[in-house]
Design a protein around this nucleic acid. Structure first.
Length: 403
DNA sequence: CTCCCTTTGAAGCTT
DNA sequence: AAGCTTCAAAGGGAG
């Protein structure tokens, strides 16, 4: 599905030498934060299999390295002050450097920064030193938020300024500040897209994820610093804001990847069709499941079992889609063997990453696209320099995979 | 039209 | 405290 049809992604990005994923600074934590999470993250494996033996993007080629270097030229990150501070622990106190403010503002006010805000020079916009300025930024930001609809509970800083009731319904919500990787993605996405004909965000993000790992510490530090500044500015702009405010935002994505272990929830009845019937009995699946939508049976079971109603996505496509992905590599038999959960969700991954131990054991299973049985798989354990799948402990729910 | 995918990281929530 | 979940961006794909 998410895969570029046809498989051979090399077509999408000529000159790709990504078959040699860069260990780069694998395991090197952010400069200011030596936590296991990142280390775990560094070892993640892309979910998009890149069949055909080549990782289709030249992100790691020397050529690209040069490009990447140019991307981080001072002109792009004129925040030399910030850069200079990367090495040392951050001065945790405000005030935020003006550079950071501007970097933040581009995001809060798209009109200021455009899509690739990071590319903006810092001093383009003065920091919201005055309340009027802050209000201005807030309102701009709020206006930029309506695209997804919202049901956020809080939203104190931004009241619905829109005229129509529809927009009032979906109160603009204050979005989370971008983290380092998100900032990086935002900046680099266009370049990756330009270099490759590939446009699918999922695939692009995989590339960006790998590139992220290939970045040097200093390069990553820039983004961590940026992210930190974003957070600080965000706190300034919206003192009372909490990430919790956005939970359930838009009524979608809610618990997208939540119920990963139906068994835990109540046995077979609470299994989704895929888990209950297996791949080879898809004809038994409920219609939504076949369509990769909510599993009605699951929903019913949930309701019947008085478990909290699941507003979303019980029939997580994770499994299904990953099946499909994994099927591209190994037919069927490996299904239960595929790291469905790992592959699936951001949440799952995050959770998994948090499980990572400093010295992860060799992965018991192989992420999609790293099937060692596939000798041609560029992402196979043998070929990857970063096979260390962070999951030292296998999530129990993997057992629910249909065998 | 709506939701999913896919990535990492931050933060909230749950146990 | 540790583990888990959600959300942040993005845009094509799929139903």
């Amino acid at each position: 599905m998410g895969l570029p049809a046809g498989g051979s992604l090399s077509l999408f990005c000529p000159g790709g030498d990504l078959g040699q994923p860069p260990p780069a600074h694998m395991g090197i934590p952010p400069p200011y934060q030596l936590d296991s999470k990142l280390a775990a993250g560094l070892a993640r494996t892309p979910m998009y299999p890149f069949p055909g033996g080549t990782y289709p993007y030249p992100m790691l080629s020397p050529e690209m390295s040069q490009v990447a270097a140019s991307w981080h030229t001072p002109s792009m990150y004129p925040i030399s002050s910030a850069a200079s501070g990367f090495r040392s622990p951050y001065p945790t106190s405000l005030p935020i450097p003006s550079s950071s403010l501007s970097s933040e503002l581009y995001r809060f006010s798209p009109t200021l920064g455009g899509g690739l805000g990071l590319g903006l020079g810092p001093a383009l916009v003065p920091p919201p030193s005055s309340k009027a300025d802050v209000d201005s930024y807030q309102s701009r930001f709020a206006r930029s938020l309506d695209k997804g609809g919202s049901s956020s509970a809080n939203d104190k800083p931004t009241e619905p300024t829109s005229s129509n009731s529809k927009e009032q319904n979906k109160k603009p919500h204050i979005k989370k500040p971008l983290n380092a990787f998100m900032l990086y993605m935002k900046e680099m996405r266009a370049k990756v897209v330009a270099e490759c004909t590939l446009k699918e965000s999922a695939a692009i993000n995989q590339i960006l994820g790998r590139r992220w790992h290939s970045l040097s510490r200093e390069e990553q530090a820039k983004y961590y610093e940026k992210a930190r500044q974003e957070r600080q500015l965000h706190m300034q702009l919206y003192p009372g804001w909490s990430a919790r405010d956005n939970y359930g935002y838009g009524s979608k994505k809610k618990k997208r990847k939540k119920d990963r272990s139906p068994a835990e929830l109540g046995g077979n009845n609470l299994k989704k069709c895929r888990a209950r019937y297996g791949l080879d009995q898809q004809n038994q699946w409920c219609k939504p499941c076949r369509r990769k939508k909510k599993c009605v049976r699951y929903m019913e079971a949930l309701a019947a079992s008085s478990v909290l109603p699941m507003p979303q996505s019980p029939c997580s496509d994770e499994d299904v889609k990953l099946e499909e992905l994994s099927d591209a590599f190994s037919d069927g038999e490996g299904d239960a063997d595929t790291p469905l959960n790992s592959a699936s969700s951001p949440g799952g991954l995050s959770a998994l990453s948090s499980l990572a131990s400093p010295a992860p054991e060799p992965p018991a299973r192989h992420p999609v696209g790293t099937n060692p049985r596939d000798a041609n798989n560029p992402l196979s354990v043998g070929q990857l320099t970063s096979p260390a799948w962070p999951r030292a402990a296998r999530p129990p729910h993997e057992a629910i995979s249909v065998s």
